[in-house]
Design a protein around this nucleic acid. Structure first.
Length: 220
DNA sequence: GCGACAG
DNA sequence: ATCTTGTCGC
């Protein structure tokens, strides 16, 4: 790895000061989803980004990047493992999305600097963290109806929302990534999840990395 | 020491 | 994340 674990933690604490936790958005016409998949066998990683029309959720553009895994999986240092392939895939885009939804946390992180924050600050774009499971924090049970939520709390501080995107389906963990308020982040996650638990942006990116991993690496 | 721990 | 079949339910 190019950076050691200790330095990575110090870097996060420093970069966390650059995170903007209020809305600094222009009109949002396109929204992107990002995801990463691994092939430990060949030490390869696939990063993908899918850009959707923010209103129709129609798929507009996709890009992928396949490269060497450069950092181990360490809870809390997730972004150092996933950022490289995501940035490389992003560079290939012809469309610059107005918002990015990440498969992981934003400020709901030990040093308030999860993947969504790191990607947002690096690209200077609004980002949302939408994770499938908790990293830190406590919360009260969420009612079963779609749209119900409860605060995700760490030391009295609300770092995110535990949001039910579908009736009777396990909730997701939403937090601020960069340049967006928590309320707006929740609204977008709901809008992007009309039918399934996860946002369409995440589903498209997830589908893309798995398809790519299968076709380009399984024949090794 | 014990449990928790994004993907 | 990934390893993995069938199966219950809308």
């Amino acid at each position: 790895m190019a950076i050691n674990i200790h330095d990575a933690e110090l870097l996060q604490a420093s970069l966390a000061k650059q995170v903007i936790t209020h809305n600094e958005l222009n009109s949002i016409n396109t929204v992107a989803g990002v995801d990463v998949a691994y092939h430990e066998q060949s030490n390869q990683v696939v990063g993908a980004i899918s850009v959707l029309d923010a209103n129709t959720l129609e798929l507009l553009e996709t890009q992928v990047s396949i490269e060497e895994i450069s950092f181990p999986y360490v809870p809390g240092l997730f972004s150092f493992r996933e950022l490289p392939p995501l940035l490389n895939a992003f560079e290939k885009l012809s469309i610059r999305p107005d918002l990015i939804v990440c498969d992981g946390h934003g400020i709901a992180h030990p040093r308030r600097f999860g993947l969504a924050c790191h990607l947002g600050v690096t690209l200077n774009l609004p980002t949302i963290g939408c994770a499938k499971t908790k990293l830190i924090g406590d919360f009260l049970p969420v009612e079963q109806a779609r749209g119900q939520m409860s605060d995700l709390i760490v030391n009295e501080e609300v770092v995110g929302k535990v949001l039910r995107t579908q009736h009777n389906v396990k909730p997701v963990f939403v937090s601020i990534g960069h340049k967006i308020s928590l309320d707006a982040a929740v609204d977008w996650v709901l809008k992007l999840s009309p039918k399934y638990r996860l946002p369409e942006t995440t589903r498209q990116a997830d589908q893309l990395v798995n398809k790519t991993l299968k076709s380009k690496l399984e024949l090794i």
